[in-house]
Structures are given as C-alpha cells and as structure tokens.
Design a protein around this nucleic acid. Structure first.
Lengths: 339, 339
DNA sequence: ATGAAAGCGCTAACAA
DNA sequence: TTGTTAGCGCTTTCAT
C-alpha cells in the first residue's frame, strides 16, 4: 500500500505537505497542491485508517448491533437508512448480528471497543424495551426500534399508537362502523400501543369501540399469532353480523385474512376491507388486491438514529429522548368505502 | 481506554510481557501470567485494533459490499451466514450497501482500502454475472449470489438449475403430468437455469414437457413478472385442460397463483398443487395452505463465501471456482398427489 | 522467561 | 508556506 512518504518522495516535498493536501488544509501553495495531487492520484493513495486513529482521532466507524433473525427480514432497512445518513460524512458501519445470543453480544461489544467505534446503534427486530448492558462503554449508544428499559439512552421507535390510530381512522372515514381487529400476541409493546391508538380514533370520531370484535393473538412466542389468525378470521367472518372491515396486527395476519375471505367466498374489498401493518412489500405489493397497510418506518428510523447519534455527541450522557417516528398509511386496493 | 502500558505498570512487568499474555504466547511464567491476567480483567483491557494493524498485521475485518434494495430483503441471510463463519475466528464485517449506485460503490472500495480489509465479499441480490471493478485491489474478492463475468473470481451461486429440477421432480413424483410454469422475467440467469432444470426432470422421467403450458414473465425490470402473474395464472387455470399443478418462478408469483385460484374457486392443494421458489418465509409460512417451495440457500452462501475467502488466501490469484450451493425443496402443504 | 528499542503511517505542535 | 519532531499502542527483533 502506498504511504504518505512514498508520495512525498515522488513529489519532492515533505510528508507533512502531502498530509496537508490530503486533508484539505488551505495553507498550501496552489502549485504544490496540484503537483502533489497528481502523484496522489497516479499512485492511488488511500490514507491508512488505522494510522489515523492512532493519533487519538475518533473513528469514522460506528457499531451496529442487531438481534435480527431470519424471519424478520425487513429490518435491514434500518441498516440502509443508517448507511444513507453515514455515507454523507464518509462514515461506516461495523455490523454485529447476535441472533439474540447474549454471549455473542458480549463478544461483539468487546470487538466494538477494540475498534474504538465512535458510537453504537443498537437495533431490535421488534419494538420492545431493552437493557443495553455496557456500563463502561463511553461513546454514545442509540437504540433503534427499541427503547432503554431504564430510560437512560436516546431511542428511535415507530409511533405504533399513531399507526393504530391511522388504521382505524382510515376505515372510519370510509364509513366502516363494524370493524374487526386481529391483534398480534398480547405481550408486546406494539399490541398495546396500537390497540390504544385504535380506541382513541373511535373516541375522536364520537363512536364506541366494540370490544367483542377484537380477537387478541394468543399468548405465545413472537409470530405465534399467525398460528391462529386464519381460524380467528374465519370465525369472525362467519358470524351473522360480521365486520365490514378488519384491522390486522401485521401484513402476515392480513395474508391469512385474505385466505379466510377466499375460503368464505368474500370478495376483497367489495365484501370486506382489510388494512395491514408493517408494509412488508413482499406481501403487500403482491396480494391481489394489493394491501392497504401502515408502514413501519425502518429506513427513517435508521437514518434518524445516526442523526441522533451525532446529537448525542454534543449533549451530555443523560440526554435520552424517546423519539417517535410516524407510521404512515400506504394506500393500495384492499379497502373501499361503504354506503 | 486502557493500554498495555497501564496494565504493565500496575502489574509491575514490562509492556512486552503483557503483550505476550494477551496474545497467548506460552513463553511466560505461570505465576506472572496469572498476576497479569488479573489486572487485564480488572482494568477491562481490550487491545486497540488500529495499533495492531499498524505493524503490517493483516486486518481481521472483511468488507461486505452489496447492492441490496428494499424489495429484496431476504438476502440479509447472506450477511448472517458470513458472520456466523467469521465469528468463530473473531473476524468482522464492514458493510457497504450501494443500492446499485456505482459512484457509491467506488467510494466504498476506497473505504475498504482505507481500512485495509483482509478481503471483500461482493454480494448481489439476485443471481447474475458481475464485473467487479477494482483492478488494483490485491486482497481476495469472493462473489456471493453472483459470479464474475470474466470468470476471474471465485463465486458462490445458488444451484438454480438443480432447484428447477427439484420443483419438477417433486411434482412428477406426486403423479402430476400437466404442469404449468410461470417463469420470472426472461432476461435473468435464474429463469434460464431453472427452465433447463425443469426440462431435464421431464426428460429423466421419460416424459415430454408441454411448452404451451409455460407462461414466461414479460420483459421488463426485475419483479415485473408480478405485474402479470395473476392474469397469466387466471388464464392458465381457466382453460379446459388446465394444469393440475403450477411451478412458480418465485414465492411472490405463487402468492398470486393463490389469489387466482381463490378467484376461480379452485382449492389448493385439492384442485391445484403449487410449488414456489425462494422460500420467503413471510409468504411461504403464512399462506394457507402453507407453501411448498424451493429454498434459496442464502445463509449457506454467506457461510461458504467466508470459507472460500480463506481458501482464496492460500491459493493464487487465478483460483476462481464457481461453486454451486444446492436449493432444497421445503415441503409444506400446497402440493398433493393425484391419482 | 523477560525486557529495551525500533518502527508501523499518520497528525499535532512547533519551528523555520 | 513548508518542514521537523515526537508520539499514538502495539508487535517484532534482538538482547539479557
């Protein structure tokens, strides 16, 4: 690899002069600059990041720790968002995927420290509280898609309550009144918040929410709701006073509602409106009719996590806002107005 | 951050002795080792990766370049597989996501060089030829899910032909003879290879393949096939001599076939068997009935890419095998035997 | 078995 | 405007 010294020798100047030019220091003669720049390019010089760091300079590398698992692929967009924001300043991500393994997580924290990362984004695959366990880690830690159980770290989370509100509001505006709800498993944050949002939308519309039309996901592991969504939907839609619309806990549940509707010969959206959550495009764009849903703003969460990280560097260690990122309705074809 | 010197001072030994212990050099007195190790832990010493690299040592960091886009989320599994393999040797990934932007890709190559990465895995989101454009990059480059157009780099690719073969073979063994095929867009490698595999399976079974039952995806951008799959499926299934089974170009196409079947009141699998490709779990596990499909071995591709990288370091620069990774059938509920 | 010294490539501080 | 010197934290080489 080409070093500063080699370039300096070729150009017949000192190392420091070359260093100045590489770093855009204005205090260099224009002629020298051009001459040196020529050599820089022809030798294809690239500064050695390790050497730069040695001089106490902070790293341009951030750590990204995630518990991603095979079944929740969309959260990659958090990475994409983070990288989009980092790229503007030539910063990069060192990625650590724990698959939920705590021992692995410890190793990765060690690795982050070995690399003297400038900060860490800790991203979870679903919205939940988390205790980030690195008491002696001095650089900022920002949580993405999860929040600090102790409230001691800044975090970016989807506005699930607003998303639930948006689902209900959207259907109410289309004139629906009997609205079924198929929730995710009850023990997660999203379920509670979205449920609260739905109820608030009914209140704001001056209507009362019929609790009997809510079918809660059974207790069980994450994604367990899909074991029962189909049956729940069939039951709900077989009733005499069946709902004219269904709010789904996520797009996978919506997929099962589609199956249930087909099973019962109900046409979507003519006989039944369906609204999902997450906007998993693999599902939402491919269902026929395509699925109106509420997007989880993963990309935006990633982008803002980086911005928040930068702010955290300016603020003291107690700065720990919990930032809600809106979940917008993505309108497609699965809902229609009723008269 | 704690340095070797601080530990050495506390322990009352030289820097070098501590260094030896950190690096597992056996040539140290057992007593000294224990004493020093105590301080190492209590001070929570972590070696400075940048400093280590300065002494010419090769980096434990690999570059991972990908063109991932929002609509193809599953390829993250390549990253997960690569990390699983790297983790055993305490190596890590610096991730660069180009979203297909060539200017960005150039910047990232520069960044990889700045970090003196030990090698680069170049992963594409769909199986295709690729020209990796870094003439002066000396460390090994391994392609994952794509292959070198010039045949000059090792690559790991899914065995699409074997996958197509497996789709057809599976249905033939269940007794199906009239088998429809809905392909992806024609211009991509996967379409050609899978088509060849399907035909080979028919030949091996001593049967002839009815070309009229193949509906090719229209020309257009990637994913364009889903614009027409629903209509194509309806047309195919409305014919008098409709097929008893359909082979789909991917799971998204299969999803549309499900919609088409529902539309025509055909019950899956009783009236129609469906087999997908990709095993996108968000779809395959949630459809009712769940979808029998052929898995794209992304995790395995990532894992083997790392192994191949290690081999490449042993071999000379001309070593460039093209390694096929099998695509196994994942049996679920969407196919059944016919009498 | 242990230590002292040199130097990796760069930048900060100072000098010319 | 340009150059010199020192030193970041570590490993390598050579001594002891």
């Amino acid at each position: 690899m080409v070093t500063l010294r080699e370039v300096a020798e070729r150009a017949g100047v000192s190392i420091k002069t070359v260093s100045r030019i590489v770093n855009g220091d204005p205090a260099v003669n224009a002629k020298t600059r051009i001459a040196v720049q020529h050599h820089l390019e022809s030798l294809n010089y690239v500064p050695n990041h390790a050497a730069r760091m040695m001089r106490g300079g902070s790293s341009s590398v951030f750590g990204f720790m995630t518990d991603a698992v095979a079944t929740t692929p969309y959260s990659v967009d958090i990475v994409r968002g983070a990288q989009a924001a980092l790229n503007e300043k030539n910063q990069t991500l060192l990625i650590a995927n724990t698959d939920g393994d705590e021992k692995l997580e410890k190793e990765y924290w060690r690795m982050f420290r070995a690399h003297r990362v400038a900060g860490v984004i800790y991203a979870s695959m679903f919205h939940r509280p988390h205790i980030v366990g690195q008491p002696d880690f001095k650089d900022p830690i920002v949580l993405a898609n999860c929040f600090a159980a102790l409230g001691d770290k800044p975090s970016l989370i989807p506005d699930d309550e607003g998303g639930g509100y948006a689902q209900a509001e959207y259907l109410l505006k289309l004139g629906h009144r009997r609205i079924g709800v198929l929730t995710l498993i009850p023990d997660i944050v999203a379920t509670t918040l979205r449920g609260a949002g739905i109820r608030q939308a009914f209140r704001d519309a001056g209507l009362s929410f019929d609790e009997s039309l809510e079918q809660r996901g059974m207790d069980g592991p994450v994604h367990f709701e899909r074991m029962i969504a189909f049956d729940a939907a069939v039951k709900m839609l077989s009733a005499k006073d069946r709902p004219s619309a269904i709010i789904c806990g996520n797009d996978q549940v919506a997929l099962q509602v589609y199956s249930a509707a087909a099973h019962l010969d109900l046409h979507i959206p003519r006989d039944l409106s369906v609204i999902g959550f997450d906007d998993q495009k693999v599902i939402s764009e491919n269902l026929r009719p395509s699925l109106t849903t509420v997007a989880l703003p993963y990309f935006e969460i990633g982008r803002q996590a980086v911005e928040t990280m930068r702010e955290a560097k300016q603020n003291d260690a107690n700065w720990a806002p919990k930032i809600l990122v809106p979940c917008p309705v993505v309108e497609r074809e699965s809902c229609c107005a009723i008269s």
